[in-house]
Design a protein around this nucleic acid. Structure first.
Lengths: 233, 233
DNA sequence: TAGTGGTCTAGACCACGGT
DNA sequence: CCGTGGTCTAGACCACTAG
């Protein structure tokens, strides 16, 4: 139900309810949601308010209106800023896949008096077999993340740990994209036959305040579609 | 004035009037437009209808609302997240370089009854010699941009033309990044010695509303650092 | 024909910003 | 304080879709 005296606008409350029902799977893809009149009756608010809630969800791409028919749960387009930056695990889980991660190397190292945790992981997803998709190296400053090296990142999501244990949120990345010839390791990991070039992304992950959270380098399997959505501000 | 009995919704009519006043310069950047109450009185329609018109213009990035103050004409920011997407010419000029562009092929083609203008350009900068940096192909729908094929894009900036002649502003890109073996053409253009792989970016340029403005494909010279800055959602 | 979303009216009260 | 945009109500008529 809605809180009519609260500070949160009614259309926002309704919007969140419908959004959660979509994301939780209560309304399935391409399913019809209740009509504006029904919702207006059900929640005891006017149709205008219902429309405002639905309009926002349409703008967000969660719903689609069809005149004379109703409002449908829209097909979920795959949206993410970049493969693997800012949350590989979360991204795959949202797609309903089972993420797989294997720590190949890790160490604590000192550069200029500062301690860093360096970790190389092969990552991918597990279906019948494990399918590896990226080889990535992360370097994180230990003064920002004390005891980070005590987590097992073949089991834990790096970004979830940063959020939940350290309260630090990655905000943006600055990277350079290039091509790289495959090596023995990558050929083995990705089961490559040809001597193809691979896509490589190197750069820095920053917090909202511009704090350097992580330096990383990711080499992508030829099977990965490196998709990218970005605004031109 | 508005046509109250016409087929075009009142909020669309008002929206177009205000849009034209902004683009024609009657309202200047950062200027306050008349308040919702004033517009409602002036055009003899309710405030809701005025709000709908203004909301759409806010969504299009032409206006900005400020609670308690009013609605302002928004500054048209120009920033570039990516090499070449959304304005190669402007980007290079800002760097103090002289852009160079050469149209290699262009044609008008029909796909599914719709007409498109297709253009392949080699682009780069001119110092002592011309240095080519990218080979790119653009496909634009001619119903959105009538007579676009009559411009000479070795001299004119494509994106400036879209903005100034057609009033359409690119907002974001959705692309796939991949690697591609060099061809005869690219080896010649970029004066490559080795048989390296090149970086290729293919995708769509969209307006704020999600309108598809352009399909493009860009192949980068090995001398280009493909830098990328993007926010995580 | 019944139900849906699309548009529009004529009000109301509120929170915010500047005087 | 007044004017601004933000939210909300309670209606109305229309155009579209489907049985």
């Amino acid at each position: 139900m809605l809180n009519k005296n609260g500070i949160i606008p009614l259309y926002i409350q309704l919007q969140n309810i419908i959004r959660d029902d979509i994301l939780s799977g209560k309304y399935k893809q391409e399913e019809l949601i209740p009509s504006e009149n029904v919702l207006s009756e059900q929640y005891q608010i006017t149709r205008s308010t219902v429309r405002k809630a639905i309009s926002n969800l349409v703008d967000n791409g969660l719903l689609r209106r069809e005149h004379g028919k109703g409002s449908f749960v829209a097909l979920q387009k795959i949206k993410y800023s970049m493969w693997n930056f800012g949350g590989f695990t979360d991204f795959l889980k949202k797609q309903g896949k089972i993420p797989y991660s294997e720590v190949i190397e890790d160490e604590v190292l000192k550069i200029g008096g500062r301690s860093y945790y360096r970790m190389m992981r092969a990552r991918g997803l597990k279906e019948e077999h494990v399918k590896l998709l990226t080889l990535d190296t992360s370097v994180l400053p230990l003064d920002l993340f004390p005891d980070l090296n005590s987590f097992d990142f073949s089991k834990n999501s790096l970004y979830r740990t940063l959020r939940e244990e350290y309260g630090i949120f990655p905000d943006r990345v600055e990277v350079v994209v290039s091509t790289e010839r495959c090596t023995e390791l990558t050929r083995k990991l990705f089961k490559m036959k040809d001597d193809d070039s691979l896509l490589k992304v190197e750069g820095t992950v920053l917090s909202k305040k511009g704090l350097e959270i992580e330096r990383m380098s990711v080499v992508y399997s030829p099977d990965v579609d490196f998709k990218l959505i970005t605004t031109l501000e």
